[in-house]
Computed example of a mutant assay.
Amino acid sequence: MAIKHLRTLFASQLQPGQPAQVRPGEALSEPGGDYEGLHKQMKRLFNSKPGKKYGRFSEDVGESPFSAWLKDYLEDRQSFVSLTDRIFGQWQELLNGSQEEHQGHLMLVHEALADGEVMYLLVIESDSALRFDGQQSLDTTDVLSLSRLNLAVRIELEDWQNDNPGENYLTLVHARGSGEPGELFIRLCGFTNQVDVEKETLTFMDAVEAFARSSEPEEAGKIRARAYEFSRDQHALGEPVAIEALSGYLDEDQPQRFKEFASETAELPESGVLHPDHRKVKKLVRIAGSGGGMSVSFSSDLVNQAVYYDRDNDALTITKLPKALREQLQRYLESRDD
């Protein structure tokens, strides 16, 4: 990882109706050291964040000029300082009209990777912490939150600059509860949602399940497990699922088998890439449910082996109980007998 340029802005809007207070930092080139460490942690939070959205820049440049400014910077028509001055200025204008309080650091990072360049725009929040001052009296101070990331966007620069850019070169983190500042952040980066994650999750799961059922019974469980593993690993990397890569992962001897099967049985996007929600994909390997004072979860491989479902009587029979569960049941029954 190598940061080419980085700049931060502290913005505070604690009195709605009044101008937001801002303090821009210096533009840094190849800052290294602690900045690399901070950005690495923010990326880790970004990649692990569930419920990310995928899309592209809005075509309404008048409403959201971020993409136009970014293009000028990448084509050397303005400096990184000029780019950030404009972005920071618009962020202040947006916060001026906010009716909700906001405080945080806006950080823009231009990063060069082995496989391309990306741009991150993140809102870094703060936590309160206690410390002893010079007179050994307790005092409160603000420190950067290294465990929370609620607003951020990543731009795949090369995907965006292609002659025929795809529909999902933007990845957005927009956490619930971010309120009006969250909506203002979306306006700032000009994000337009183009990917239906719920639909693509169903497409992914239906294709894998159909492929598993078409395979030999002893292979079906392995296929589901490997599909979930691949989806989980891609999520950890912050990357979508490429059908061709998944196909090779599911069957190394016949790497095109799943791809050909899915092409015939599912409506795959032209890009050959899906963005499944890894939390829901877990249903491929685990069956779970709760309600009425009961919570049950088990591996799907145990169906008709250690777990039997009677549809007619709506009854579940579990054999080969886990040792800890069996011991708890025995102690409970003994205590009742006493």
Score class of each variant (00 low, 15 high):
residue 9 L to N: 05
residue 10 F to A: 09
residue 11 A to S: 11
residue 12 S to H: 09
residue 13 Q to W: 02
residue 13 Q to E: 08
residue 13 Q to G: 02
residue 14 L to C: 01
residue 14 L to I: 10
residue 14 L to P: 00
residue 15 Q to Y: 09
residue 15 Q to F: 10
residue 15 Q to H: 12
residue 16 P to W: 12
residue 16 P to N: 11
residue 16 P to Y: 10
residue 17 G to H: 06
residue 17 G to K: 07
residue 18 Q to T: 06
residue 18 Q to N: 09
residue 19 P to M: 08
residue 20 A to E: 04
residue 20 A to W: 03
residue 22 V to S: 04
residue 23 R to S: 10
residue 24 P to G: 03
residue 24 P to E: 05
residue 25 G to C: 04
residue 27 A to Y: 02
residue 27 A to E: 07
residue 27 A to H: 00
residue 27 A to D: 05
residue 28 L to P: 00
residue 28 L to Y: 03
residue 29 S to P: 00
residue 30 E to D: 11
residue 30 E to A: 12
residue 32 G to T: 09
residue 33 G to H: 10
residue 33 G to M: 06
residue 34 D to E: 15
residue 36 E to C: 05
residue 37 G to V: 04
residue 37 G to C: 04
residue 37 G to A: 14
residue 38 L to Y: 13
residue 38 L to C: 05
residue 40 K to P: 00
residue 42 M to C: 10
residue 44 R to H: 10
residue 45 L to E: 04
residue 48 S to H: 11
residue 49 K to I: 01
residue 50 P to H: 11
residue 50 P to Y: 12
residue 51 G to A: 14
residue 51 G to V: 11
residue 51 G to P: 03
residue 53 K to E: 15
residue 54 Y to I: 03
residue 55 G to S: 12
residue 58 S to R: 10
residue 61 V to P: 00
residue 61 V to A: 15
residue 64 S to G: 01
residue 66 F to C: 03
residue 66 F to V: 02
residue 68 A to C: 01
residue 69 W to I: 01
residue 69 W to Q: 02
residue 69 W to T: 00
residue 69 W to L: 08
residue 71 K to C: 05
residue 71 K to N: 12
residue 73 Y to E: 04
residue 74 L to T: 10
residue 74 L to F: 10
residue 75 E to H: 14
residue 75 E to N: 13
residue 76 D to A: 14
residue 79 S to L: 04
